[in-house]
């Protein structure tokens, strides 16, 4: 009905009962990923209804929210692992099909291929992408330098420690130089020492490449520590509770958690989180 009208006459918000699209709701400046009119329900219960989101370019966004609000589902829908009921998701105006993405799974043990060495795991997406062997070698060597790898990559994944395996996962996901990197609770299976290590490596990689990153976390400190923006979600049916900015210089050292700005942002996100939890 409204589709027949010229764009300039369209209302800024879609009428009740209709979903937004990029035509009715423009993307904010510096946006990389736009989500419009996203709907998803499980077993007849709506999880997301007409959900809109802009993810900024070259920034790290953490998704945080109460249990069962669909943090991972949201990320997996954007990454194409979970189908949408309705809505559109565009990367720089392109569809997912034309976009290179990377994904780091929570369970690194199940994500790596145990039949080939760690080195071959990292090279796998490059070789399958048709890259020449010499270029593959150069690319993997560059990653080894970037991540300052000191363990033997000629070993099989099951011979590595948890933190080493997750590092290999991150290297593999970044090998193809993805536009967007998704990380699903990358620290939850790691001990504290390895969490600090991977946090540092992720920041270095982010500084070096400027890759847009989306992290789902169930740990508030992890969520805030790495993020430029913290996306706080409500209980289901899920909406955005708040998009908190956290502008702190990088690289952030482990001591940053004692910084007054960090403490303030963390306290604020906690406050929003508790408000939504009790809502």
């Amino acid at each position: 009905m409204s589709g027949a009208l010229p764009i300039s006459v369209l209302p800024p918000q879609a009428a009740a009962g209709e979903s937004d699209s990029l035509l009715t709701l423009r993307a904010a400046p510096q946006t990389h990923v736009t989500v419009r009119g996203l709907s998803k329900s499980f077993a007849g219960k709506p999880l997301y209804t007409n959900f809109n989101l802009d993810l900024p370019r070259a920034r790290i966004v953490s998704i945080f929210g109460p249990n069962g609000c669909g943090k991972s589902t949201l990320m997996n829908m954007i990454a194409g692992l979970v189908p949408l009921d309705a809505g559109e998701i565009l990367f720089d105006g392109k569809s997912l099909k034309d976009t290179k993405i990377g994904y780091v799974f929570q369970n690194y043990r199940d994500a790596l291929f145990p039949w080939i060495t760690a080195w071959d795991n990292i090279a796998y997406p490059l070789r399958r992408g048709g890259m020449k062997e010499a270029d593959v070698r150069a690319r993997v060597e560059a990653l080894v330098k970037l991540f300052e790898i000191r363990f033997d990559l000629q070993r099989y994944p099951y011979e590595l420690s948890g933190g080493q395996m997750q590092t290999v996962c991150i290297m593999r996901s970044m090998a193809t130089e993805p536009e967007v990197l998704f990380l699903d609770e990358p620290f939850s299976a790691l001990d504290f020492e390895m969490t600090l290590f991977i946090r540092a490596k992720l920041q270095e990689a982010h500084l070096a490449t400027g890759t847009t990153m989306v992290i789902v976390s169930h740990d508030l400190e992890d969520a805030v520590f790495l993020a430029d923006r913290i996306l706080l979600l409500t209980r289901r049916p899920t909406r955005i509770a708040e998009l908190v900015s956290f502008e702190m210089a990088r690289p952030r050292l482990p001591e940053a958690v004692a910084d007054p700005e960090f403490v303030r942002v963390k306290a604020h996100t906690l406050e929003v989180f508790r408000r939504e939890m009790n809502a």
């Binding site: 692992l81 290179k100 994904y103 994500a111 790596l112 039949w115 992408g129």
Partner: peptide, 28 residues
Amino acid sequence: KKTRVMAAQIMGVSKWHVFKDVMLMESL
């Protein structure tokens, strides 16, 4: 393992290669 299959899919690997490189190896 579903995670391994998804990991390969998300790399943009063809269906045949997901089958050959992951599912077949996984079944060995």
